[in-house]
Write a protein that binds this DNA or RNA. Sequence first.
RNA 1: GGGGGAAUGUCCCGAGCGGCAAAGGGGGCGGACUGUAAAUCCGCUGGCUACGCCUUCGCAGGUUCGAGUCCUGCUUCCCCCA
Length: 419
Amino acid sequence: MTDFKPKSEFLVTLKERGFIHQCSDFEGLDALAAKGKAIAYVGYDCTASSLHIGNYISIMMLYWLQQSGNKPITLMGGGTTRIGDPSGKDETRALRSIEEIDANKAAIRTVFSKILTFGDGASDAVMIDNADWLTKVNWIDMLRDVGRHFSVNRMLSMDSVRLRLEREQEMSFIEFNYMIAQSYDYVELARRAGCNLQMGGSDQWGNIIMGVDLGRRMGTHQLYALTTPLLTTASGAKMGKTAQGAVWLNAEQFSPYDFWQYWRNTEDADVGKFLKLFTVLPMTEIRRLEALQGSEINEAKKALANAATELLHGKAAAEAAAETARTTFEEGGAAAGLPTVEIDGAELARGLGVLAVFVKAGLVPSNGEARRQIQAGGLRVNDAVVGDPTAVLKPADAINSGAIKLSFGKKKHVLLRPV
RNA sequence: GGGGGAAUGUCCCGAGCGGCAAAGGGGGCGGACUGUAAAUCCGCUGGCUACGCCUUCGCAGGUUCGAGUCCUGCUUCCCCCA
């Protein structure tokens, strides 16, 4: 792929921004995309109530697809989630209830419209749910029409299956069928919507390519496959994990402020890569930011945080997060935009123990942890290190804004507001 | 069907003569150094009304002053033989 020189705007953009890992046929796809005839889908599991940063990459691919005049399809896995994708997992996850899947689906779908334009136009995005057909298939028909095209020998050699078998880890029949369902989805989308490209993470390569094969056997038009590299940080960690868990895209589960902070804390070596993948800043600007050295890299990190947050949560939210960060970290103040926890004013008047306060604020999980952190000098009230675990907070501790600023470590701050 | 192993601090791996809140890693968190980075160094990594109390070693019983450790039954997983 390194020697391939794409001509279409779509592939040129994807290539220069580092989205491409593997493609089934660069030339063929390039020709299609150049004519604005690429109709691409990405499937999203409904295993959680929000998508996370890993999914964000694929949404960005759909974004660039749409920007270049092609058509994106977001496929909700309302049907496939009932089966459970074995790819990249050591063991079977608990099956989710149908109610849970539907609830997740409803929560997830809102995020796409922030980045893609939906509608009836030629390059407008559409959303489709594979429950529409997967829940209706007849087993015998399925076996005769679709199943006969699958070689079990080949299925056993797929990474998602083979790795499980090699490690002697259990794999149930239902999971074994996942790739069939996903392959069938591709064919169904080709027939229903003229879809001709499926994109996804590199762990999906096997599933996608099986769909391409199935399409050929079942007589669809030519199908294509395109995957993104598995993203890790420069120091080798999987991307998207923080102390609180995954980096979610829904604001309710991961606030714009936290989202901004996530990017602001990017490792130096990753800034350029992330700018290309997670922002729509022009390449000329990205090259300038990438070239910064030493502490100047902080400018690039702020640009990254601003641009990524703006794209997902909007300009106002991004600016608010940036301003909160500025007053908190650059002035050492207590910005009003910090996460706020309300407490009963009467309770505060009676006096609240520091231990309980930090637990109440959600900064530490237990009194014991609070104690340990005090030992280590990790807790601060209004920027003063807490040295005494028996200290008590009173209304008089509230500073100018009427709130008390609690800090855990250098980066986590919460305002405690009496009401 | 027969025989032999294994399950440990609910993040993971993993030691554990009958006195154990339980070795050691990894990961994570905090501190120092920096630039809200990385690397490095140091500390912490069951709960509580905290010089004490409570709950943890697959599940349920038993022996014992005392059980992760011994006995019995059960569950799950692995290996060998048929």
